[in-house]
Amino acid sequence: MQTNLSTNKVTHWGKELRRGGVLWIPFIPLLVFALAFEILPMGYIIYSSVHTSKGFGLEAYAQIINSKYYLISLRNSLLVSIAVGIIGLLIGTIGALALRSLSDAWREKLLTLVNMTSNFSGVPLAFAYIVLLGVNGLVTVLAKEKLGLDLYGAGFNLFSWTGIVLVYIYFTVPLAFMLMYPAVYAIKQDIIEAAQIMGASRAYFWRRVGLPILLPAMLGSFTLLFANALGAYATAYALTSSNNSLVSITIANLVTGDIFPDPTLASALAVVMACFLSLSIAINARLKKSSGGMGL
């Protein structure tokens, strides 16, 4: 009786709360900021991409499609992001799986370390790699002196595609690790043992149960890693500032560059890039819904 009475009172109060009065006022400044710095800039890019000097039209998009240069930068970005996403995901997943063999306390310590390294990206990361693997980098010199291995002579170049992919993988691995950990952790010891009791080998278990459980999470994580790499700018800029072959750098150069500023074209490229990003985010959201939150 007693508890019944009080819960009734609570739901009654809940209804009362619904009629909030003037409580919507704090939303106004938030909305103003979101409009000014988030929604309108996005809208402005779309507007600007179809607003040419001759009026409205899709010339900028046509220019992208007809230009080898822009298509190549777009293709480069997509290829790098896919490659980096896949390699990062594999390393991260293997790492998360290996983490299962540790005790809880150790697991948590290592996870925070991984989390910490995920902050190491952008200009500082590019710079650390230059110090290590640049033409006169520590590793480059040491490899030559001690191992007689001439990295640059063998075709390696930090300031080229190999370098970009190498550095991108570095900042992707910690993210992949953190994204895959919850999914890997969901494969509890008990189902492994259940399979073991029934006589399944480890390989059979992973083929029939483990991997199928991981796959949606891997796909979901991949979309995020891909989006992250596609949007990245600072790392590549610091590494190869003059090399325009990635789409994010091309976009920025088209707006700020002193040579051929073309905001309309930049906006059109940005819209194309945003479409790829939205697509991957949408796939991620879809996966998350269907697997009950595993995709993150």
Partner: peptide, 28 residues
């Protein structure tokens, strides 16, 4: 390897394989 032993076990948590249907679980 547990194949030859033929022991059946039910876990407190059931430990059903979440990616398999009831039929596939039982047929495992």
């Amino acid at each position: 390897k547990k194949k030859a032993q033929n022991i059946g076990m039910v876990f407190q948590s059931y430990a059903l394989f979440p990616n398999l249907t009831a039929y596939e679980n039982i047929a495992f």
